[in-house]
Design a protein around this nucleic acid. Sequence first.
DNA 1: CTCAGAATTGATAACAATTATCATTTTATA
DNA 2: TATAAAATGATAATTGTTATCAATTCTGAG
Lengths: 123, 123
Amino acid sequence: MNYSRQREIILETLTNNAVHPTAEELYSLLEKEYGTASLATLYRNLNLLAANGIIKKIDGLEQSSHYDHNIDEHYHFMCNKCKKVYDVSAAVAPGLIEQAEKELGADIESCDIIFHGTCKDCK
Amino acid sequence: MNYSRQREIILETLTNNAVHPTAEELYSLLEKEYGTASLATLYRNLNLLAANGIIKKIDGLEQSSHYDHNIDEHYHFMCNKCKKVYDVSAAVAPGLIEQAEKELGADIESCDIIFHGTCKDCK
DNA sequence: CTCAGAATTGATAACAATTATCATTTTATA
DNA sequence: TATAAAATGATAATTGTTATCAATTCTGAG
């Protein structure tokens, strides 16, 4: 992976100016901030960054993927009303992977949890 | 929801002849078994059945949704090698929803867990 | 039973999200 | 600084799913 200015901008924007954005949301931000942006380049770099473990792709929230600069083990909650996405700490499910490995006899590499419901502000 | 023969066939096939299929997989099965099938009708009925809590749509496994006739609380594991989908019992994460509710101050209605790794047979 | 209105269907167009293509430009390095 | 690999931008293509709409099928009241 060579250096690239676009990738730097994308990562920086994801890290500092967006929380769990979709590619489209990030694209709008980039356009507004830097004028220059190609959707193809954005997708390519998001995939590259995710493949290299620098960011995390969050699937299962909506039909479009969201992206997270926080790669520490944690989970997500989406409010059915306001559609906001909240982080949930890994502490809510201690020993989860070990339990599942024992049950399946499998090697588990990752585990994603998506909660749905009504958030504190909306209820 | 009126009675419909197509819906009956779809539900029966999902229940008895397919495990966690995608819409496409189910479509092939239906075509083979009954000759008659419309992709639109299939999607419509899968959505209807899921909206009525009769089946469950599983998102986050692949870009296409999978469907499950088993609506008891349980989770899923997908093998990175063979792509097979396994059930994981709810017992691997006792008190998960309560923990997350406490942390967020939210009302949680549902919770989906997707594990990825290498299954017993592939490792 | 039968008729009207609601629900369902099938065929296909449309749509949204994402990826592929490819000629041009940028980056790293010998 | 020349060269090869990597990255880019514009856009076409692909995939999965939903919308449209005329025709068919259900259902319940009369």
